[in-house]
Design a protein around this nucleic acid. Structure first.
Lengths: 114, 114
DNA sequence: CTAACGTACAACCAAATGGTTGTACATGAG
DNA sequence: CTCATGTACAACCATTTGGTTGTACGTTAG
């Protein structure tokens, strides 16, 4: 979760997600679009990749970047859960949808946060 | 947007959001719940506040923290927009909903059009 | 009034971020 | 083969982050 939201917390990375949603793009092509060095874009892609938002696939000497739609859905689901909590819906929903099965609880209360 | 997602990219802060969704809590009460100093929690609350996720209200010598539901909705909307983009729905939706009016474009590019 | 409580804020520190440049190495084009 | 292209990665730097402690200040309880 941390990595997911952190990856989304940068305008350049969000833009990369948009661009690579429609059709895959090589890192070089991406880099041409931004006012920063190739290496910097490479790092942004790496952050997105670690967060599972993007996957790379080699084609010849190029590395094609493709966004993973499911990852964003995961982030959205997390926000939904958060929203549901303070709307008091969480208890009802938990029972109705049996969310307790595998839902990430994400509670740092008893352990170190970082 | 950056601040919003950045604020969400920390387990402690997300937990604070949950706790302050149901009923307001003073910063001291919050601090008791986490394995860190009062000042650290204070900073986390400040980050949430800057992101507009939370508002503080003074009651006597206490400072009550309350989550703003609309802010999370904003984040969710941003993700929806992102998701819609690479599903090819964006063009259709843009026209249908006239998103071009005031919607935050969030595009750091100076290069070729998107 | 005085003491304890809740808060604010500054100073400091280690680690992570976001950027740079430079170098090395495959791979495809000519 | 040779060279330009696309990538990877290390080293470096300034700034931000997330945490600490310490100090100061207003407010409430006794």
């Amino acid at each position: 979760m941390d990595q997911l939201f952190h990856a989304l917390a940068d305008a350049t990375r969000r833009d990369i997600l948009r661009r690579c949603g429609r059709g895959e793009l090589s890192v070089s092509r991406l880099a041409e679009a931004y006012p920063m060095s190739f290496a910097a874009v490479q790092k942004h892609v790496a952050v997105l990749e670690r967060a599972g938002l993007v996957s790379k696939e080699r084609r010849g000497r190029e590395q094609l970047v493709r966004t993973d739609p499911d990852a964003v859905s995961r982030a959205r689901a997390a926000l939904d859960e958060l929203e549901a909590t303070w709307r008091g819906r969480v208890d009802r929903m938990a029972r109705l949808l049996a969310l307790d099965s595998g839902q990430e609880t994400d509670n740092p209360t008893r352990g170190p946060a970082r």
